[in-house]
Nucleic acid binder design. Sequence first.
RNA 1: GCCGAAGUGGCGAAACGGCAGACGCACACGACUCAAAAUCGUGCGGGAAACCAUGAGGGUUCGAGUCCCUCCUUCGGCACCA
Length: 802
Amino acid sequence: MDYVQIEKKWQEIWEKENRFVAPNNVEGKENKYILIEFPYPSGRGLHMGHCRSYTAIDAYARKKRLEGYNVMFPFGTDAYGLEAERTAIREHKAPQEIVERNIKTFQQQVRSIGMSIDWSRTINTCDPEYYKWTQWQFIQFFKHGLAEKREMTVNYCPNCGVLANEEVEDGTCCQCHAETTQKSKAQWVLKMTQYGERLADDLKDTDFMEHIKTSQINWIGKSEGVEVEFQIVGGGKFSIFTTCIETIYGITFMVVAPEAKLVDELKDRIENWSEVEEYRRATAKKSEFDRSELNKDKTGCILKGIKAINPVNGKEVPVYIGDFVIASYGTGAVMAVPTHDQRDYEFADKYGIEKIQVIEGDVSEKALEKYDYLGKGCKLINSEEFSGLTVEEAKKQITEKLVKLGVAEKKLNFKMRDWIFSRQRYWGEPIPMIHCEHCGWVPVPDDQLPVHLPKVESYEPTKDGESPLSLIEDWVATTCPHCGAPARRETDTMPGWAGSSWYFMRYCDANNSNEFASKEALSQWLPIDLYNGGNEHTTRHLLYARFWNKFLYDIGLSPVNEPFKRRISQGLILGSDGKKMSKSSGNGVDPLEVISNYSADALRLWMSFIGDYFESAVWNDDGVKACHKFLTRVERLQDILVDGDEISKDLEVAIHTAIKKVSQDMDNIKFNTAISALMILLNEINKVGKINHAEYKTLLTLLNPFAPHLTEELWTIQGYAPRICDMKWPTWNEEKLVKDEIEYAIQINNKIITRENFSTTATDKELEELSTTNPKVLESLNGKQIVKVIVIKNRLINIIAK
RNA sequence: GCCGAAGUGGCGAAACGGCAGACGCACACGACUCAAAAUCGUGCGGGAAACCAUGAGGGUUCGAGUCCCUCCUUCGGCACCA
């Protein structure tokens, strides 16, 4: 059989029949929304990683369809991205052109692996009909006070402008190799931290894989603490955030972020200004990543002449700037207690600062940190009226005192930061805002959306770090929608994450031109039953999308508080060298080549059989070969096909076992063992030497989700009606699985003495009796006293003897 | 550094706290064949055996690949790649 040819044939038939189009509503059918993350349509086309998750989840979707659900399984492309922009610059082509070409390739390739996609719902984030609504939704964020322009730090190259972290290598620009610095720039931000608590807490209502929940909770990093105001001797003040207010009597210095405005305000009073300036320059060269946790060697620079006053006891302490303090995180300043924070301990040692211990314990070698003292009844010392209290009690009382003094308030702080939503790049959705001298920032009116991304001559960011859009004067110049005065358009574009934050909603109503999706359509499909995607999207994309949906939910535009019921992540496909497949490392295998050598069905089967779906797996050609062989063995069953339209006694147990195993394993995303169950069934059939039509139909149906083309073909060859995709998923009968007898391992003190068949209906008492009177057991006991008998039903009996 | 995940035969891997290695690959032998390929069949962790084996070391348990603690190694993410 020519697999390549029959696969092409069936793909065309499915397409012509609109076989996988799912209407929003079908009488008598329950909806299931199964989603794979839409890909970025890179010029390299579909890779093995895509194939693994796409084909496995396609099998899942096909099974759900056979089970009688109305399944929506859509596909689209996330077109905005740096790669298209870089290719555009390199090839002197419009990114639109490049992306269009790539999308065609992607869709073609997705068809060629036999995906059961509803193509009537296809979307593409750079389509004006789509990004119109991305822009409209941004405006809703703005109208509800969740979008604002704020000074943020960015990577800056003197030649290429603002850079992504990815574009900075060891402090130099990856394109022109000039030295990069950190620069402050006004950026649109979405106030995601306002949703921090709900994003963490509402995970309890989802069925995400446990490690995904944990990752998100850690990323959000909610901490309860106190924000305290410190006065500066001679005037001025600043605030710090701490989760360890109980250590406040141990403060011996303070550290503020080098770029803090406070430092500029104090310039005249800082005695070592040139030294401070030098330190700030050095800091500007470091990325935030280098500055924060990666860097173990904490550095700082004292602000000579500046002292902060500890509000609890009036103690005056020195103030430093230190690059490990980040301006945009927390309040951009910290209190330092060397005895109870290891970082402060090392800093104090380095700069010869005193240490005051305030919690009992050993601090001679290293700090006694909160993990060491919390919840252990440790008591405060050297803390005036709070000495002698437990840390937990002191936390409460010290906070109360500071609040009463009017210098502190309880606060929640998040590790997660607000979402920087501006990009100074061409290839993204224009941010639909207009700046008017009189009215400030004004959104583009709805009837003028979308703000089309204009064609430009050059796609490179400008040297001053603005988007290339800023060079199109007649596009930028406009009038204020509010007062009609001359005004200017925002030239920043949105990040790639924008379009992907709500695409799952658009699928529900992809061709709606009046709204982003009707509430009715959304209600029919949301929440998504199964959302599959890469582990690399666990924290960002998945949080952005949840945040975006929560906002729409709050303003009444989304029917659900949580859009994804269940989230799973596939493991990576690695090259034969054990590294992630990529073009650069030359370990890539082209799926199309595999298809033409072995067939899409063989590839699909191998992608599911290769190993546990959630673990990474090493690609291996022999595996596809083996799966191809399995398919040809199934094909050859035609030779031993006999009459019979009921499952025969010969294969009853084998078939019901397979139905149960395949059904349950697929629901539990254990595709590899589902396939092994099919292999076991095939071996069993060959042992029996014949198969009747009822049995053959059952086998083909069970195999259909994994090998849809071959099973359609074999089904049609027999002239079975209706078509296999109209079949009902087989069910198993538990009674057919119950055997009369089962083999028990009989152990004495955990060592196997013998194996015996016992009735499956025997009670524990009977099994105990049967085993302890067994001749081999009696011989091995050799007069020892039986202490206890442990009976594990259908498995083993363990006799403990002395 | 921080967060997350994973370490089981020659290889990909199975295994509700209960007989470790299902299923598959590779390999070996046999059948078919003049021969080879394909196909089919048998065997296949180590050890002569007692036994020893799930990255290393401890612990809980009648019983640990699985649960707890310490450590080692590898992979993914770390906010302007998406």
